[in-house]
Simulated scan of single mutants.
Amino acid sequence: MQRTTLKAWFLVHKWTSLVCTVFLLLLCLTGLPLVFGEEIAHLDEPEVAAAPADAVPRDLDAQVRTALAQYPGDVPLFVGWDPDAPTVYVNTGARPDTPPQQMHTALLHAVSGEVLPAAQFNQGVMYFLYRLHTDLFLGLPGMSFMGAMGLLFAAAIVSGLVLYGPFMRRQRFGTLRTGRSRRLAWLDLHNVLGVVTLGWALVVGVTGAINTIAKPLEQAWQSEQLGEFAARYAGKPRPTTLAPLQAAVATARHAAPGMRPAFVSFPGTGYSGDHHYGVFMQGNTPLTERLYRPVLIDAQTGALTAQPQLPGYMSVLLLSQPLHFGDYGKLPLKILWALLDLLTIAVLVTGLYLWFKRGSTEARVSELERAAQTEAAP
């Protein structure tokens, strides 16, 4: 590699790394417990015995009435099912467009309707870590900033691989030159750990950047596809008397055989317009359970309106969200994600050490040239 090219790649790697390192340390540290977020959440949930196979689930409309009794004055927003326990959750709020941070959650036994202890959206350490990880408590601007840091991280990974490539051709993989200087040993450790975590870090960085634009993508989908159906109801007020929810879900099940309902959005929440229930169906495999298929049910008549297909960008978003936290292979994959997260923290720490012990740019480039020219030990 020519010296000018090597210097250019070195500068790209140096500055992209420096700009994003502190924030990446924050993301790695907060992301570590979030990988096990589902398992941690279950620790605070009550033990619910599995329902008999022939048990008849309680009527969903009765479940909603029970939830609203817990929060007088609220309106129903979402109803969903836990695939791993016989429970139903109902989200309520003061108005149909209540943001998640202000929603209330009621957790009910799917058969008996017993009210169970439920964690709320805006409480607890995990909520604090999640907001810190996703948007720094700044909303969309903070989320966009974190997305930019993710893209800089991807650039740092690619430029680091380019710089390490010539060295790898001359040295055995995993070489640590401990007999010469401490800084050189740290450089080798930084390079080796970087290569080991390269694929994972690139996947997590890119999916994280994609997830930061989730809100704009959802809004685009709502305006494009849901707006088409909402236009048919132009000028009509939002219905005040709704068709039975139980019947609406049954209609959606019939319209999407082989799938199960994941959650239902009520009119006005933004997920199904002002005149529809949105029954979001999911498959039964680790992949298809992430690709929701919405079924729109007229909230006043209970009739099937449409089954709009999710656009490609929404499918990419839905697949990237669980991939970011290793949520495809259950606990074994999450443990692997956690180990790689720890290794990435080591990469960032060694990179900071190398920067504090830095020399001039010319000296660093010369060092890279010498490293690339050193013959492998026999």
Rank of each mutant, 00 (worst) to 15 (best):
Q2E: 11
R3Y: 11
A8R: 14
A8P: 00
W9K: 02
F10W: 15
F10H: 11
T16R: 04
C20K: 01
L25R: 04
L26P: 00
C28G: 08
L29H: 04
G31Y: 03
L34G: 03
E39I: 05
I40K: 08
H42I: 08
L43W: 15
D44A: 15
A53T: 13
A55T: 02
V56F: 03
V64S: 07
A69P: 00
P72W: 12
L77F: 00
L77T: 03
L77K: 05
V79W: 11
V79T: 13
G80L: 07
P83D: 07
V88R: 06
V90D: 10
T98Y: 01
P99Q: 06
Q101L: 12
M103G: 06
M103C: 06
M103F: 02
H104N: 14
H109T: 09
A110E: 14
V111T: 13
S112M: 05
L116N: 09
P117C: 13
A118R: 06
Q123N: 08
V125N: 03
Y130N: 10
H133I: 09
T134A: 11
D135Q: 10
L136I: 10
L138K: 08
G139L: 03
M143H: 05
S144A: 15
M146H: 07
G150W: 12
L152N: 03
A154M: 14
I157F: 06
I157S: 04
L161A: 14
L163F: 07
R170F: 01
R172G: 14
F173W: 15
T175W: 10
R177V: 07
L187R: 13
L187F: 14
L189I: 13
N191G: 14
N191S: 15
V195P: 02
T197Y: 02
L202Y: 01
V204I: 15
T207K: 04
I210V: 15
N211I: 04
I213M: 14
Q219A: 12
Q219I: 08
W221I: 00
S223Q: 14
F229Q: 08
F229H: 14
F229V: 04
A230P: 00
A231F: 02
A234Y: 08
A234R: 14
G235F: 04
K236D: 05
R238K: 13
R238M: 15
R238A: 15
L242R: 11
A243W: 05
A247K: 13
A252T: 06
R253V: 10
A255H: 11
G258R: 06
F266S: 01
F266L: 14
S272M: 05
G273T: 02
Y277A: 02
P286L: 05
T288A: 13
E289V: 12
R290W: 09
R290T: 04
R290S: 05
L291I: 13
A303G: 08
P308Y: 07
Q309Y: 07
L310K: 15
P311V: 00
G312F: 13
Y313R: 02
M314N: 01
S315K: 15
V316E: 05
L317G: 03
L318W: 11
S320G: 10
F325G: 01
D327T: 10
K330I: 06
P332W: 12
I335M: 11
L336R: 01
W337N: 11
A338K: 00
D341Y: 03
L348W: 04
V349L: 15
T350G: 02
T350S: 15
W355C: 03
T361W: 03
E362R: 14
V365Q: 07
L368M: 12
R370Y: 09
E375R: 12
A376V: 06
